[in-house]
Each structure stands twice: as structure tokens, then as C-alpha cells.
Design a binder for these strands. Structure first.
Length: 622
DNA sequence: CTAGGGTTAG
């Protein structure tokens, strides 16, 4: 049983019940029959059902519960089912559980119907694991599950921490009870499997085995690909869906938009926006939120703001997405203004909103504002800062060059620093010349994460900047001996409705022959304009000339060269990168924007860089 | 009484 979260409810139940018990004892003494006459009982039942129909608050629910007990309807399945669904819509599950499983109810009267309602309510609650317990209780009571039971059960399992443990068992149960061919059950199976890590294969197996699909099957599969980090596959499946003639609805579009946000595919984002208009897909709140988020993450922050302004209603998610979007683009002042506007609109910020506003302060170098907001979390809003908030603060100080303050902050944090925090500090040490500190932090970090390639890259960069070349080549040796690989840099570029992928050092691909020639030519032109390669960015222990070649193979340079070759003069080039942009590429891109007269928008791991006329919007803080 | 969907440090 879940703990009763509302103490006075317990009192109420007990008070009313003991009154009821007294009556029952009196009845027993007078040898009266337990059941009232049928018509009276039906009247009481009707009365309670209509009472529950008008329940729109928890106090009213408690009143109804008192009536229910007074009228002796605590074992009436119809009333209990209604009570369960009403209390779950008011998120007061403890009410229905304490009623259903109180010592005064008669569980032997419960039917599958009631259990389904209960399992559904639990599946939608934060106690979703209890749905599984009540499913097994149902079986132990020899009640047969029906085709309605499995969608609820599978949904509860999908939301559990390790769905792969119970998911296949539930699938087997669905087969055993002959409901695994049901369209609803199969659609929920797709969802459940795609919630297991690496489960998209099983999800796809279910999907491919379906003789009949509908829009829900496709949306579940597309959403499953997005959840598994396979956004390209999600978009491909969306196109296949259109070919197959199944009409996408607002849920499908939301899933595709999150793939779009992940890929940073602006053309696709704009296409979906017009698709929604053209097909008159209802612009629900989640759809507008997904659209606004996708446009911001694809680089069209002003388009995102336009969506936000035009929204008929906004939730805290809408506000947070705008704040995050502005933060990512380095527009910290505006992000803070939107945060304040949100408060004026009467919305109380939550912990996610604070992550947005803190990261906005950090990306825009607004140290005092960041300090203020961090302090206000607890003092004004009673929100305990989480590690993400502390991470923002460490980043805030680090970017501003206040490495000591960052270090002090880490030492005074209420929780243990994680590797993300350490890596933030190490980057700060490198940028602001604190080599000894950077080295000692990295050595400690390597003890915790000896197989994490990016830690070695960080340490190597620290050594390179302090010109300790022997130390640097030592790292290289350790890495190759242990078989530790650095994550390859990868840049995406949308061209002619397709996503082109460029991977660092991918020189063996003959189809990019002209791209490599272009990179060489770019290098020559940039040098004439005054560009000097930042050789310290090269991890390899090789001579200077080879280092320059290595830099030429960085994925964003390949992508930019491709774009310069293929796209019309002066059109904006948009690139999405998986890692933080390196110092050399950052410098080179500034030069390219001037020499080739192109606006270049790069989304890296952390934020957007808008390059124009030889300058970058991040003002070289990133 | 059925299914699929929106924001989260670097």
C-alpha cells in the first residue's frame, strides 16, 4: 500500500467507518439483513455516481468518500470504479487505495473492470510500479485480464526504471491471454520496447510484424527512434509514413519535431511548420512547444520567438523553452527579461526554468545576475539547487575567468561534484592559464574515469598550452596502449533536404575529393588574410606540417568547404557539431565569414555561434 | 476503462 499522504484523510476514513461499524453491530444485534432493499440500494448508488461526477476538488472527493461509506457502498464495484477514476483524475490515488483496501471493503467482489481502472490510475501516477503489483494481485485473485488491461500495464512498465526486466514478461503474458494481436496492445508494445535501452530493435520487430497499422503505431515507432537517439531514422520513418498514406497527426508531428531539434535541421523545421498549417493539424500546446523548441535549436531563434508570441496559451514549458533558446544563442539579457516576464504572468518558476536562466547568465557573462538567481532559488522559491544548477554556477565563474571562485564554489557545494563539473573547471584552467590546477584535477578525474577519451584530450590540451610536449606524447602513448579512443568530431549539414554527415579525418571517402581540395584552398586564402592555425589543438604527436593537415580534417571545416562549393554565394551556412568547437576551427570560421562573405551559424555541444564579418556572437567565450 | 507527444548543466 502506498503511504497515506493526507493525514486527515485517514482520520476521516476511520471516523466515518467506526460510525458505520457501530451501525453494523446494531444491525447484527437486531438480526437485520446486511443488504438494504434493491431499490434503496440502487438509489444510493445513483446518488453517489452523480456526486462523483461533480467532484472537481479533493475536499469534495473526501465528502463523496464519507457519503460512500455512510451509505454502505464500499463494496459496490460500480461505485468503487467510478471513485477510483475520479480520485485519479484529481491525483489523489491514496484516497482510492485506502478505500479499496481498507479492512471494511470486500475485495472478493472486485472485478477485472475495477482492477483495470486501478492499474490505469497507478500507471499514470508517480507510483507506476504499484500498477505491476496490482496486476499480479489481480491474477492471484483469479481475475482474468482483458484487452484493456495490457495497454495500462505496459505503459506502467515503460515508465519504470528498468523496463527491460518486466517488459518481455508482460509481452509473454499478453500472448498467453491472447491479446498480443490487438492493435492497442501492439502499439503500446512498440512504446514499451522503445523505452528499454537498445530496445528499438524489438520495437521495430513488433512494428514490422503488424498486419495493420494506424497513425499511433507510426508515431510510437518514430518517437521510439527519437528516444533511442536515432533522429535520422525517425525522420526517414516519417517520410515512409507519408508514402504509405497514413496521415500524420499532431502527436506524430511533435515526435518529428524533437528529431528535428536534435538534428538541428532548420529546413525540415520550417517545412513541418508549413505542413502543420497546410494540413490544418491542430496546434495544441505540446505541438507549439515542440515547434518553438525545434526552431530555437535549429538556429532560428527569432522564428521561435514568433511562435511563442502567437501562442494562445503558454505553459511553463513554453517559457522555459524560450529562455533556453535565448540562452543558447548568448542572448542572456533577453532571457532574463523573459524570465521576469514569466513571473509577472503569474507563473512560478521550477527547477528546470532556473537551469535555463542560470545558463543564460553563464553564456552571457552575467555573473551578478547568476549569483542573484541562484540565491533566490532557495530563499524566494524554496527550490533546493541540484547538481545541474551548481554546474551552471561553476560554468558562470569559469567563463568569466574567476577560476578561484569556481573552485571555492565546488568546495562549498552541498553535493559531490561529478565529472561534468570537473571538466568545466579543467576547461577554465586551460583557458585562463591555471595549468597546475588543471593538471591535478584531471589526474584525479582520470582515476574515476580511466576509459573516458575526452578527459585525456583535456589533459593533453592543458599540456600543449603550457608547452610540455613530452607530457603530451606520454598521454598519447597511454591512450593507444589502453585502446582509449577520443570521440570523433562530427558535423551535420542540411542540403537539398538531406542531412550530410562529415566525420573528422574521414579522408578516405573518395566522394569528398573536391571537398578536400577546397579545404586546402580555404587554408591558403585564410592565411593571406592573416589566419594563423592554432596547432595546440592537435592531439597527435607529429610535426608542424602534419598538424596543419590534421586541423584541415576537422569535421566542421569539411562541412563548411562542402557548403561553400554547393550553396549559392552569400547564403547562410548552418552546421551542427557533436563536440565543442575547437579554438582553431573557431578562429578559422571567423576568417571564413569575412573572406568568403558568408554568415555561418554553428551549433556546437553547448551553444550557437553566429559568425559574421570576421566576428562571432559568443565574443570568444565558449 | 484501451495506444503514440512538449522544457533540463557542459
Amino acid at each position: 500500500m502506498i503511504p497515506n499522504k493526507i493525514p486527515y484523510l485517514t482520520l476521516q476514513v476511520h471516523g466515518v467507518s467506526s460510525e458505520h461499524q457501530r451501525r453494523r453491530r446494531r444491525r447484527r444485534r437486531r438480526r437485520e439483513p446486511m443488504n438494504k432493499s434493491n431499490s434503496k440500494r440502487r438509489a444510493a448508488e445513483q446518488h453517489l455516481l452523480s456526486l462523483l461526477d461533480t467532484c472537481d476538488s479533493i475536499p469534495k472527493l473526501h465528502q463523496a468518500q464519507a457519503h460512500l461509506l455512510k451509505l454502505g457502498l464500499h463494496s459496490n464495484p460500480l461505485v468503487l470504479t467510478k471513485f477510483t477514476s475520479t480520485s485519479s483524475s484529481l491525483s489523489s490515488l491514496s484516497s482510492s487505495l485506502s478505500l479499496l483496501f481498507s479492512p471494511f471493503s470486500s475485495p472478493h467482489l472486485y472485478d477485472s473492470f475495477l482492477f483495470n481502472t486501478l492499474i490505469r490510475s497507478l500507471a499514470h501516477s508517480s507510483f507506476n510500479l504499484l500498477a505491476i503489483s496490482y496486476f499480479s494481485l489481480m491474477l492471484r485473485r483469479r481475475l482474468l485480464p482483458n484487452k484493456f488491461t495490457f495497454p495500462f500495464l505496459l505503459k506502467a512498465i515503460a515508465a519504470a526504471p528498468s523496463p527491460h526486466l518486466l517488459g518481455p514478461q508482460a509481452h509473454a503474458a499478453a500472448i498467453k491471454f491472447t491479446f498480443a494481436d490487438d492493435l492497442f496492445v501492439r502499439n503500446t508494445l512498440i512504446h514499451m520496447y522503445s523505452c528499454c535501452s537498445g530496445g528499438f530493435h524489438s520495437a521495430r520487430k513488433v512494428f514490422d510484424g503488424m498486419p495493420k497499422t494506424n497513425v499511433v503505431s507510426w508515431s510510437a515507432m518514430i518517437g521510439g527512434y527519437v528516444r533511442s537517439g536515432l533522429s535520422n531514422e525517425a525522420v526517414a520513418l516519417f517520410r515512409e509514413m507519408q508514402v504509405s498514406g497514413v496521415r500524420p497527426d499532431e502527436v506524430t508531428v511533435v515526435a518529428v519535431l524533437s528529431a528535428c531539434a536534435d538534428l538541428g535541421a532548420l529546413e525540415l523545421g520550417h517545412w513541418i511548420k508549413s505542413f502543420v498549417e497546410r494540413e490544418r493539424i491542430p496546434k495544441t500546446l505540446p505541438l507549439c512547444n515542440a515547434l518553438l523548441d525545434a526552431l530555437a535549436k535549429c538556429g532560428d531563434i527569432d522564428g521561435a520567438l514568433k511562435v511563442f508570441v502567437e501562442m494562445p496559451e503558454r505553459s511553463i514549458v513554453s517559457w522555459t523553452s524560450v529562455i533556453d533558446g535565448l540562452a543558447m544563442h548568448g542572448r542572456g539579457r533577453e532571457a532574463v527579461a523573459v524570465f521576469e516576464e514569466m513571473r509577472t504572468a503569474g507563473i512560478v518558476p521550477d527547477d528546470v526554468a532556473f537551469i535555463g536562466v542560470l545558463s543564460a547568465c553563464s553564456h552571457a557573462g552575467m555573473v551578478d545576475d547568476g549569483r542573484h538567481y541562484f540565491a533566490s532559488m532557495k530563499s524566494e522559491f524554496g527550490i533546493e539547487p541540484k547538481i545541474q544548477h551548481c554546474g551552471c554556477m561553476v560554468d558562470l565563474f569559469s567563463r568569466a575567468g574567476m577560476v578561484e571562485q569556481a573552485m571555492e564554489f565546488v568546495q562549498s557545494m552541498p553535493m559531490r561534484p561529478n565529472p561534468v563539473i570537473w571538466r568545466t573547471l579543467i576547461s577554465a584552467c586551460r583557458v585562463h592559464g591555471k595549468f597546475e590546477l588543471g593538471e591535478s584535477i584531471t589526474r584525479n578525474l582520470l582515476k574515476d574515469e580511466p576509459m573516458h577519451g575526452s578527459n585525456y584530450v583535456l589533459l593533453s590540451n592543458v599540456y600543449a598550452l603550457s608547452r610540455r610536449w613530452e607530457k603530451k606524447s606520454e598521454i598519447r602513448k597511454v591512450m593507444s596502449k589502453q585502446g582509449i579512443k577520443k570521440v570523433p568530431g562530427c558535423s551535420l549539414l542540411e542540403f537539398n533536404g538531406e542531412i550530410h554527415e562529415f566525420i573528422a579525418g574521414d579522408e578516405l571517402h573518395s566522394k569528398y575529393r573536391d571537398v578536400f581540395d577546397m579545404v586546402e584552398e580555404m587554408g591558403r586564402k585564410l592565411k593571406l588574410a592573416g589566419y594563423v592555425p592554432v596547432l595546440s589543438e592537435v592531439l597527435l604527436d607529429i610535426d608542424e606540417e602534419d598538424k596543419e593537415d590534421a586541423l584541415h580534417q576537422h569535421s566542421e571545416k569539411l562541412a563548411i568547404a562542402f557548403a561553400l562549393l554547393k550553396t549559392a554565394p552569400r547564403t547562410t551556412i548552418r552546421i551542427v557539431k557533436n563536440l565543442r568547437v575547437c579554438a582553431d576551427c573557431h578562429l578559422a570560421t571567423k576568417f571564413i565569414s569575412k573572406v568568403y562573405d558568408r554568415d555561418i551559424v554553428v551549433r556546437d555541444r553547448n551553444r550557437f555561434h553566429h559568425f559574421k564579418d570576421g566576428l562571432c556572437s559568443c565574443r570568444d567565450f565558449w
